[in-house]
């Protein structure tokens, strides 16, 4: 199966290891990965802030890139971020309609139908994955991100995948499904509330999963937010994208 990778801007610039890991795992699951570098960003920050025209302008570049990959034989678009996958699948058609670009809205619908969040696609292809094993066992607490849960309704797949990794013990906790407080521009418009929400999340993590070695999630932006807060508060937490955990479990020859 050929898939087209939507890198997402945050991963591209701040956490490239996440996309590298995603590519390794996708290949191990038997996917041929393409990546069209004409993509930029899905436009979500501007859309959520109310600037639909600017969001549409940016999203159009990414729409063109993804559409071209799908036209060239990719069967699906894969996104290593629940929030950006939601933007493409749920909000793009509306975004382009609001911006008055009905043609792009129609094209976005077709791209959206073929877009999968990474864990969703990997769960479908789990049978193709080689046995996964971590050299050093870890206990992983799973952060459930908002758009994955409540827009895409991807609930079980991240945990199922993480549990396939021998040596990775997955723990849930009370509050794992509560928002981390990032919310795009919310984090800079109401920073005190945003930080209080991150603290609440981190406190619930410490209380509910006190032995966890690593906080694992499917959205780099949430993880970075929590990590930045934890660091500033002097109680650093170790965060990893699910793709990195899976990639770390690949047999040596496939990992390289």
């Amino acid at each position: 199966m050929r898939v087209s990778l939507l890198i997402t801007c945050v991963v591209d610039v701040v956490a490239p290891d996440v996309a590298s890991a995603a590519v390794r795992v996708l290949r191990a699951a038997g996917c041929e990965v393409t990546c069209n570098l004409a993509q930029t960003c899905c436009g979500q920050p501007a859309w959520n802030a109310g600037f639909a025209d600017d969001a549409a302008r940016v999203a159009r570049a990414t729409l063109d890139a993804l559409e071209s990959d799908l036209g060239d034989g990719a069967e699906a678009v894969v996104v290593p971020a629940g929030s950006c996958a939601t933007m493409v699948r749920v909000f793009w058609p509306e975004l382009f309609e609001v911006a008055g670009d009905h043609d792009a809205a129609a094209r976005a619908r077709l791209v959206g139908e073929r877009t999968r969040e990474l864990s969703e696609l990997l769960a479908e292809r789990a049978g193709h994955l080689p046995p996964l094993r971590l050299g050093r066992p870890v206990q992983a607490a799973l952060h459930e991100s908002c758009h994955m849960l409540r827009e895409l309704r991807i609930v079980d797949q991240p945990g199922e995948l993480a549990r396939r990794v021998e040596g990775c013990e997955v723990v849930g906790w009370d509050g794992s499904d509560r928002c981390c407080g990032f919310g795009g521009t919310f984090s800079v418009k109401l920073p005190e509330a945003s930080v209080a929400m991150a603290d609440d999340k981190l406190e619930s993590l410490a209380a509910g999963a006190p032995d966890a070695d690593v906080l694992v999630g499917c959205d780099t932006s949430c993880l970075l937010h929590l990590q930045s807060r934890a660091e500033a508060a002097g109680r650093p937490v170790h965060v990893r994208h699910l793709a990195e955990v899976l990639a770390a479990g690949l047999p040596e020859e496939e990992a390289t």
Partner: peptide, 11 residues
Amino acid sequence: WATGRTMPRPA
């Protein structure tokens, strides 16, 4: 952003 958070560093 820096109100209580460290800056993520570009990779």
